[in-house]
Design a protein around this nucleic acid. Structure first.
Lengths: 89, 89
DNA sequence: GATACGACTGGTATTACTATACCGGCAAGT
DNA sequence: ACTTGCCGGTATAGTAATACCAGTCGTATC
């Protein structure tokens, strides 16, 4: 085996992570935040919409910094330990 | 542009991250830890040696859990905010 | 000393995915 | 209508993740 496709669970995790990031960004301009984090706007948008389910570690760290969001939060969102119930939009 | 190669800084960051992981693993068997984290031993070895400078976010989260290492620590190692001086083996 | 065992290393190969860019479309605000 | 910002689709270079292999080092065992 070489590299099996992402499991649905990983895709789900990516979606949670993206939702968390989007919520943290709130009003700020997407392109602005992306630039501050050192990633392209396109990439950030795809992460937020869950189309990049498992971004690079550094990418997430930089985004967390740009958003003032602790990495721990993002890890929790990724694992799903974050929104135990139907929390939030 | 499509995806420019990793910058030397990113490679450096990957090396720091790998070193941190290796230190955290300490005595434990590499294969055992890798299995616990849900990654292949080969992959973990490459991360530890810095040959995978920018692993997936989920990969690092799982490894951190398997090693009992907070993600924040790993993020700090990645950024270099961790070992200000010549700290440690 | 030679052999064997165990764990780590560097190299190569392969597939799936990331990160980026460009496009046309759609909704809201001016 | 025009601009601004987000969206989904497509395309592409480069990487992640995995596997296999041969070589090395240290510790035993013979």
């Amino acid at each position: 085996m070489v590299r099996q496709p992402l499991t649905p669970e990983q895709v789900e995790a990516g979606r949670r992570l993206g939702a968390r990031l989007r919520r943290a960004r709130a009003g700020r301009d997407l392109a602005e935040v992306a630039h501050a984090a050192g990633v392209s706007p396109e990439t950030l948008r795809k992460i937020e919409t869950g189309r990049l389910p498992s971004p690079g570690f550094g990418t997430i760290v930089c985004l967390g910094e740009a958003l003032g969001l602790p990495v721990q939060e993002l890890a929790a969102a990724w694992r799903g330990d974050d929104l135990p119930l139907g929390a939030v939009s």
